Structures are given as structure tokens and as C-alpha cells.
Amino acid sequence: MPIKRKRAYVYILRCADDTLYIGTAKELEKRLATHNSAKGAKYTRARLPVTLTYQEGPMSLTKALRREHQLKQLTRTQKQAVIAGELLVPHRRKR
């Protein structure tokens, strides 16, 4: 019997104040609802409502967490280009 790998998504939210939030979730729709119910991340609670602007996945949880970190290193301009599909940021390979 094959081992079932956990699947996760990386996502970018646009907050009401036009800031961007990047996160990882196993169940994306449920996580978005949690954010908008003011029970999500502390950062988004004060910036409601949030809208999903970008997502990648599904992928393994490990890859999703690495990808989240990678996207967080980008400048705001680069993040907006990723959202618009104008910038392709290759996934880093495991060293």
C-alpha cells in the first residue's frame, strides 16, 4: 500500500489595506474562510477582508513550506509580478 503524502498549497492574499500575505495551507478554501472570519493569522486579522490572488499546488508540505519561504524573500514588486504571471520564480532544488 503506497504512503499517502500530505498535500499543501502556497498562497498569496491581498489584504484590505493592499498589503500581501503569503502562507501555506493543506485545505486552501477552509484556510481562506478562517482568515476572513478573523481567526487566521494575526497579520490578516487587522486587515480584513482578504482575497486570494495567487496559489500554487498541490505539493508536499515540505515543498510548500520551502516555496513559501522563497516567495517571502521577493520584493513587493516581484510578488506582484508573480501574481500577474509576469515573473516565473523557479522552485529551488534541495541541496
Rank of each mutant, 00 (worst) to 15 (best):
I3V: 13
K4S: 03
R5W: 02
A8F: 11
Y9T: 08
V10A: 03
Y11E: 01
I12P: 06
L13Y: 08
R14H: 00
D18N: 14
T19M: 07
L20M: 01
I22M: 06
G23F: 01
T24K: 02
A25C: 08
A25V: 00
E27P: 03
E27R: 14
E27W: 14
L28W: 12
L28H: 09
L32S: 11
T34P: 01
H35Y: 09
H35S: 00
A38I: 05
Y43F: 14
Y43K: 13
T44E: 02
T44F: 05
R45I: 03
R45P: 00
A46W: 08
A46Y: 12
R47L: 01
L48G: 03
P49G: 01
V50C: 15
T51S: 15
L52H: 01
T53E: 13
E56Q: 05
E56D: 07
G57K: 11
P58V: 03
P58T: 04
P58R: 00
M59F: 05
M59C: 06
T62C: 02
L65Q: 09
R67F: 00
L71F: 01
K72M: 08
L74C: 12
L74H: 04
T75C: 02
T77G: 13
Q78E: 15
K79V: 02
Q80D: 13
Q80N: 10
A81V: 04
V82R: 08
V82S: 08
V82Q: 07
A84D: 15
A84Q: 14
G85V: 12
G85C: 09
E86Q: 15
L87R: 07
L88A: 12
L88I: 07
P90E: 10
R92P: 11
R95Y: 02
R95F: 04
